[in-house]
Amino acid sequence: MSIAQTIRERRSIRAFNRTPVPQDLVLQLLNDAVWAPNHGLREPWRFIYVGSAEGREKLAALTLEASAHLKRVKLLPSKLKEVMRKKLAEIPANLIVVMTEDKNEHKRDEDFAAVCCLMQNMQLLGWEQKLGMIWSTVDFIRSLVFRSGLGVREGERIVGILHMGFFDKIPKPKTRTPAEAKLVVW
């Protein structure tokens, strides 16, 4: 499969089957993904992998605790919160991508861009292996409860969570605006 074909065919996957995601596969993909361009070869990333049943349960509970203040969660009946917790715990694997935040704003922006490149690399590499992912940047990842629960240190930020798993159905593609419509030529 060509790179262009992989880019065009990759989809965000929200529905995973129950096939476990081997940790060694995730590590293999990460070892290729870290070849993302990064200024000064600072490699401003680190990763938290959650793949065991116990880890997924802890992450689901932490997610609900960290999002409890959100109006859309606070108003949910307890039965729906339990359904939500169970659904979160059923995601076969999660990769939390953490970035070191440089004090220099310019370097921080460069590092953020590099981490985003790494995350896209990860999604494309996973797609080649029939491993689906969705990149989550929900607001609670910035909460102190969530950060401290995961061991994210001061001077670091969570860029996103890659929820991942194998899948049975590929979503239909959505149209994209042609580049010509957004291109300005001087």
Rank of each mutant, 00 (worst) to 15 (best):
D109S: 09
M164A: 04
D139L: 07
Q123W: 01
G160M: 07
K71I: 05
W186S: 08
L75Q: 10
W127I: 12
S67G: 12
A114S: 13
A53E: 15
L80S: 08
L75Y: 01
A60V: 10
F140T: 03
A66M: 09
V97Q: 04
Q23T: 15
G126C: 06
E105T: 07
E65G: 02
D102N: 15
R42V: 11
N121V: 11
F47H: 11
G149P: 01
P20V: 14
A15G: 01
P77R: 11
P77E: 15
E57C: 01
N38D: 14
K79N: 10
R176Q: 13
L75R: 12
D24Q: 14
V21W: 04
E105D: 14
V97I: 15
I13D: 05
T6D: 14
I48P: 04
I13A: 08
Y49G: 06
L59P: 02
A66P: 00
V185D: 05
G55K: 13
T175V: 09
E128Q: 15
W45L: 03
M1I: 11
K169W: 01
R176G: 05
D111G: 01
A179K: 09
D168R: 03
V159M: 12
K169F: 00
I3C: 02
V159D: 04
F47M: 07
N38M: 10
R10A: 10
L27S: 08
L95T: 11
I134V: 15
R147S: 06
L88T: 12
E180M: 00
A68V: 01
V34R: 12
T177P: 00
P173S: 13
K174V: 10
D139A: 14
E154W: 00
E54T: 10
R147T: 07
G151I: 05
N31Y: 00
Q28F: 03
M99L: 05
Q5I: 10
